[in-house]
Simulated assay, not measured.
Amino acid sequence: MKHTIKRWLAVAASAASLIAVLPAPAQAAPAFQRQRLIATAYYGTLDIIARETLGLKARFITVGGRPVPNLVVNFVTTGERFPMCEATTDLNGWAECRNGPVPPPQSLANLLVNGYDAVFDGNRYYLPVSAHNNIGIG
């Protein structure tokens, strides 16, 4: 009987030391879903004399209506995606391209006919989103 108790205590002690040495199982990272955003682009103008686009702006908010700051937004021609400028959203969710370069002739015609897109490529917190509007000669 004494040997049985000693064996049982030895097994319990070795099991306890083995459990203490083994690393704890890694916990799975919490399932994090990126949020959807709502983007709105506003009508812009093209100054032919100064050869620049003016007032291209867009606003980015969450589905709940909260503005999203610090998003990098690219303003591009619709379709062919010629880059005109890049802006970062402010605390109110606005990104504005005040003076962007005029695209090459083919893209310029596309810009006047089809308009422009404000594009956010997404990050670890938010899904990609874009907004579209027209541009006129001003």
Results as ranks from 00 to 15, higher is better:
Glu80Asp: 08
Ala24Val: 15
Gly64Arg: 14
Val76Thr: 06
Lys57Thr: 07
Thr53Val: 15
Arg51Glu: 14
Ala13Val: 08
Ala10Lys: 12
Pro67Thr: 02
Gln33Trp: 05
Ser14Thr: 13
Thr40Val: 10
Glu52Thr: 11
Thr45Glu: 12
Lys57Asp: 14
Ala15Thr: 14
Gly64Lys: 13
Tyr42His: 15
Arg66Ile: 06
Ala12Lys: 05
Val73Leu: 01
Thr78Glu: 11
Leu71Gly: 02
Gly79Arg: 12
Ser14Tyr: 05
Glu52Val: 09
Ala58Cys: 11
Arg59Gln: 15
Gly44Pro: 04
Gly79Ser: 05
Thr77Lys: 07
Glu80Tyr: 09
Arg81His: 10
Gly64Glu: 09
Thr45Gly: 11
Gly44Asn: 05
Pro23Arg: 03
Ala10Gly: 10
Gly65Lys: 06
Val76Ala: 02
Phe32Leu: 12
Asp47Gln: 05
Ala28Leu: 15
Phe75Ile: 06
Gly65Arg: 09
Pro67Ala: 09
Leu56Val: 01
Thr62Lys: 12
Val72Asp: 03
Thr45Asn: 08
Asp47Tyr: 06
Val76Asn: 02
Arg59Gly: 02
Arg34His: 01
Arg81Lys: 12
Ala50Ile: 01
Pro83Gly: 07
Thr53Trp: 06
Pro69Trp: 08
Arg59Trp: 03
Met84Pro: 06
Ala26Gln: 15
Tyr43Ser: 04
Pro23Lys: 04
Leu37Trp: 03
Ser17Gly: 07
Pro67Tyr: 07
Pro30Asn: 09
Pro23Glu: 08
Ser17Asp: 07
Leu37Gly: 01
Arg66Thr: 10
Cys85Gln: 02
Gly79Leu: 08
Leu22Ala: 13
Gly65Asn: 05
Leu18Thr: 14
Ile49Leu: 04
Gln35Cys: 00
Ser17Thr: 14
Arg66Met: 03
Pro69Gly: 05
Gln33Lys: 11
Gly64Asn: 12
